[in-house]
Design a protein around this nucleic acid. Structure first.
Length: 411
RNA sequence: GCGCCUGUCGUCAAGCGGUUAAGACCUCGGAUUGUGGUUCCGAUAUGCAUGGGUUCGAAUCCCAUCAGGCGCCCCA
């Protein structure tokens, strides 16, 4: 019999990992609620077309990394990210008629067919926020604030915020054109990837790491274009306003002109939060503004901005959190009495286990000391006298009391 | 999709061509038939990811496959 194993790039989240995951989930609810965000859960699979139109059919994710399958002549895809799904739901449920802003947060598994490595799995989890309906830069600031404060609530401080503005479609086109123009003479020298990027998505040229391409980008005339303030007056105003909000809020950030992000829907503000303790997959958070996505997916013309964080990456930064012990463990050789007493305690809100196999008391207490705070000893002596012995397993204090007093002892 | 490295019990590992496949933790049992976290004993791999090969002889060398790690790519 061959043993069936978890599929490549997937992982069990085991009981020992749960305290960290519960911590991340509880903090998400706690922090995002403070900003008025409500949780939303959208389906794990959607129409393939949603991602092609939403995320963008020239993106790496949509082209190479989607889990797509056919069912009843429909093409379905396991979601590689959740923004498209949330936007779909926003439109479908008529949320544009709610009073703006509509703030939604989510958590859940995402799927991308990639080569796994540290901090990168095929099934992974994201927690994220989407804010709809506000075009003013204060919304950008608030969204970044939500991300930063969530990370703070998790106790993560050694992080840096990077910021950029991609401009609006208009000024971005100008930038793309001047970029293409200045690179034209060097086209033959660029790497293969960059040659396709040149045609399909010139912005992505900026994050190429091939040394030869970097050399070309370092040439003064190319550099001048890359680092030029290409964005139009309105976009620049938006970006400046955002920066001054962040300055006033004492959020430290750095502007990274090369920050582009791989999803097509972004415009104006994009940002990333990175950790220095993660190896090469070091981005814990990525996000930005996507003012035309709602409209492009058939909804009203509603601006939006959001971010997503990789929960596995967060978990590895948080480290280990101890499992909580159950409160009581009933030590007894009388299963009938033990199960009755245990259930009574549980009905009063006290977590409790008991020994099923009538092992020796030594063994039972040993087990109790590993999993519980109190041993409740219900042996022959106690059964005869109608009393109960309670032992605090941390302090070794022990007393025999009448059964009615047990609950107040445990509270 | 590409490159480099790794694969011995549930876990961490020693072993580097001839060993009875160390050791530690966990688990289970006993010392201790009603008192734990210390101690002491004992049990637990005919097996070294899988399949081929080389050799008198392979966990040890070679090849393939699978899985994992890291980097590129990409991204959370």
């Amino acid at each position: 019999m061959t043993i069936i194993k978890a599929q490549k790039g997937t992982k069990d989240i085991l009981p020992a990992d749960m305290p960290v995951w519960h911590f991340m989930e509880e903090k998400a609810n706690e922090v995002f609620s403070k900003y008025g965000a409500k949780e939303i859960r959208t389906p794990i699979f959607e129409a393939t077309e949603l991602f092609a139109r939403g995320v963008g059919d020239t993106t790496y994710i949509v082209n190479k990394e989607m889990y797509t399958f056919e069912k009843s002549e429909r093409s379905l895809t396991l979601r590689p990210e959740n923004t498209a799904g949330v936007v779909r739901s926003f439109i479908e449920n008529g949320m544009h008629r709610l009073s703006m802003p509509v703030k939604l947060w989510y958590k859940g598994p995402m799927f991308r067919y990639e080569r796994p490595q540290a901090g990168r799995q095929r099934q992974f989890h994201q927690v994220g926020v989407e804010v709809f309906g506000i075009k003013q830069p204060a919304a950008d600031a608030e969204v970044i604030l939500m991300a930063v404060n969530y990370l703070k609530a998790l106790g993560l401080n050694d992080l840096s915020v990077e910021l950029n503005s991609l401009g609006c479609p208009k000024c971005r086109d100008n930038f793309k054109n001047s970029l293409k123009q200045v690179l034209k003479p060097y086209l033959g020298e660029l790497c293969e990837d960059c040659q396709t990027r040149y045609e399909k998505n010139p912005l992505r040229l900026l994050d190429c790491k091939v040394p030869e391409c970097q050399e070309i980008f370092a040439k003064p005339e190319v550099r001048n274009v890359i680092f030029s303030d290409f964005i139009c007056e309105e976009c620049a105003e938006h970006f400046n306003a955002l920066k001054s909000y962040l300055d006033e809020l004492k959020i430290t950030y750095s502007v990274n002109k090369l920050l582009v992000r791989g999803l097509d829907y972004y415009n104006r503000t994009v940002f990333e939060i990175k950790s220095n303790n993660l190896g090469s997959q070091n981005a814990v958070c990525g996000g930005g503004r996507y003012d035309s996505l709602v409209k492009n997916l058939g909804g009203e013309d509603i601006p939006a901005i959001g971010f997503a964080m990789g929960m596995e990456r967060l978990a590895s930064l948080i480290g280990k959190i101890e499992e909580t012990k159950t409160t009581a463990f009933v030590v007894s050789n009388n299963s009938a009495e033990a199960i009755k007493l245990s259930e009574e305690l549980r009905n009063n809100g006290i977590s409790c286990e008991f020994d099923f196999s009538n092992k020796k008391f030594v063994k039972q207490i040993e087990k109790a000391s590993k999993t519980a705070k109190y041993a409740i000893i219900l042996g022959e002596d106690e059964l005869k006298t109608g009393k109960i012995t309670i032992k605090n397993l941390e302090t070794s204090e022990q007393k025999t009391i009448s059964k009615d007093l047990l609950l107040s002892e445990l509270k």
